[in-house]
Design a protein around this nucleic acid. Structure first.
Length: 130
DNA sequence: TTGTTGACCTCTT
DNA sequence: CAAGAGGCCAACA
């Protein structure tokens, strides 16, 4: 890698689902993440699995990056990796912002990792009840 | 149009 | 037990 640090995505290709038009992976991700209850967190893989493609976890992360440009800002800080680690904290306005937001929600974070991750874990496949 | 990159996850060595 | 490689889909150069 070369540490590009390029943050493009001027505008999101498709805004939030304005109806029964959810055809993009991004829209589905936004929909799920937006429904994450306060004080709860989920993982990229869980969302990807819920959407049907468990291996597409990377796209979820990419969607999160784009979510900063989307109008209905989604709680991206509530999405962490499989280990419960704040992998995307560096992509926030400030590296500490993500942890601050989580702590504000009542979530304890230690060493960039959410404590009781399994306890506050929010599984879309179970909660959303397909 | 092709090649590389990316907020990940899982299997294999 | 730790490290490496592959796979997924989309966007950028």
């Amino acid at each position: 890698m070369a540490r590009s640090k390029k943050k493009s995505i001027d505008e999101i290709p498709s805004v939030l689902p304005a109806g029964p038009g959810r055809n993009s992976f991004f829209e589905d991700v936004y929909d799920v993440v937006s429904q994450i209850p306060r004080g709860r967190i989920t993982s990229y893989g869980a969302i990807a699995f819920y959407l049907g493609s468990k291996s597409s976890a990377r796209m979820v992360g990419w969607a999160m990056n784009a979510s900063f440009h989307s109008r209905p800002k989604v709680p991206a800080h509530r999405v962490v990796n499989r280990n419960g680690m704040l992998s995307g904290k560096a992509h926030f306005a400030t590296p500490d912002l993500m942890q601050q937001l989580l702590e504000k929600e009542g979530i304890t974070v230690q060493n960039d990792t959410v404590t009781d991750f399994e306890k506050i874990f929010w599984d879309p496949a179970t909660q959303l009840t397909v």
